[in-house]
Computed example of a mutant assay.
Amino acid sequence: MIESNALFGNGLNIEFSENDDYKNWAILSRMIKNLAESGRYDDVFAGKISSDEMKDFLERLNEWFKNKALKGIAALKWAENEDEVSALMEMSKRYKGKDPSVLEIGLEDYLLGLKLFNASYGTDAVPSDALFQGMSYLMLDAIYNNGLIERIYTNMECYKPELLKFKNIFTLNYDSNVDVILDHPVYHLHGSFRTLHHEYRPDTFKGWAILQTGKALPQYISGKEYLYSDAVLGFSGRDKWDKICKYNDTYDNPLSQVFLKAHPELEAPKYPVEEFKTIKGHLHLIGVCPNNDSHIFKMINDNINISKVLYYTACDEDAEQVQKVIRKPIQILNVFKYWDHIRGKKA
């Protein structure tokens, strides 16, 4: 019997939230609204930058993004490597002939725009790691939606029988709704709001190693652990992949293996990419966007044991794009008909 596996993206949350809360424009709108909330980020930014300053920075970023980044060539001189050049050109193609508003620009596209915009300041640029971290806090907070994202499972009971058909379930989402429905963890390829980044945890080898140097672990804010989770954000597949590999290499390198054997009490949390690389049979891609995740499609293409990909699409544009990035036998399915089937609706 052919094994069936599933990989879920944000489209799953959009379907079962029964509102627009997790669409790109809604997340960006919430991010702007959160910045306007007095004192919301005082503890997060610890007085280093105010919400008003962040809001002003975002407004200038938006203006630069539309006038420079979306035109591709105009921003090339600030790209530092081939990945940034490739991501910039792909992004400019997606918006070609369009005049997107602030809320119509992809969330992850902003991360590339942020990096290039900052680089345009030359010697006056802010350290990129600090800037990225600040933007990540804002984005993760907007996605988290005051915890409401973790309540979507209350609308998903009708989907449980379908979920049980899959041998392995992977997700690109940070929430744990599928985990709750199934009452067991699924594979979070890009991390989870429920899992602290290993540098904050003394029970991991990473945390233990920091403590051995005489340094204290970085601090996180109680009640806002989701901001300090292992959730991966990046402007391209290569960018995300580099972060995943760096994290996993903490536990995979030979020296770490020696210490882990000597300290079996320490955890070695890793992103489950090896589990994804070894699936067999059919792979269902549900709610997955074909942009900015080239690392995912590379793993699919490199896995000779995946015999077929079933891609559930909401638009012709995504259907065309996914057939360009997947080099496997592929079946395109209408995701709206799929959800109607799940809910027992008749055509």
Rank of each mutant, 00 (worst) to 15 (best):
E3K: 12
N10A: 14
L12Y: 01
S17R: 05
N19P: 02
D20S: 07
L28T: 07
I32H: 08
I32F: 11
I32Y: 10
I32R: 13
K33L: 08
R40E: 08
Y41W: 05
F45I: 06
G47M: 07
K48Q: 14
S51K: 08
E53G: 06
R60N: 13
L61Y: 07
E63I: 11
W64P: 01
K66M: 09
N67R: 15
A69W: 01
K71Q: 08
G72P: 13
I73E: 15
L76E: 13
E80Y: 12
N81T: 10
D83N: 10
D83Q: 12
A87R: 02
L88M: 06
E90G: 12
K93S: 12
Y95V: 04
K98S: 11
V102Q: 13
L103W: 12
E104S: 09
I105S: 01
L116P: 07
F117L: 09
F117Q: 02
S120G: 14
G122H: 01
T123F: 10
D129K: 15
D141Y: 01
A142M: 06
A142G: 04
I143M: 04
I149N: 06
Y153V: 01
M156F: 01
K160M: 06
P161F: 06
E162Y: 06
E162P: 01
L163M: 09
F166M: 11
N168K: 15
T171M: 07
L172P: 04
L172D: 04
N173Y: 03
N177W: 00
D179L: 03
P185S: 06
H188M: 04
L189Y: 00
G191F: 05
H198N: 08
H198M: 08
H198V: 09
Y200S: 08
R201N: 11
K206F: 14
A209T: 05
I210G: 00
I210S: 02
Q219S: 15
Q219F: 09
Y220L: 11
E225A: 14
Y228M: 06
G237V: 04
D239S: 12
W241F: 14
I244R: 00
I244K: 00
K246F: 08
N248G: 09
D249G: 11
Y251K: 00
N253E: 04
N253C: 06
P254Y: 04
H263D: 10
K277F: 02
T278V: 10
I279R: 00
L283Y: 02
H284W: 09
I286Q: 02
I286E: 03
V288W: 00
C289W: 06
P290S: 09
D293M: 04
K298H: 15
K298T: 15
K298N: 15
N303Q: 07
I306F: 02
L310I: 14
Y312E: 01
T313I: 00
C315M: 06
D316L: 11
D318E: 14
A319K: 10
V322Q: 01
K324S: 11
R327T: 07
I332C: 01
F336E: 14
H341E: 14
G344L: 08
K345G: 15
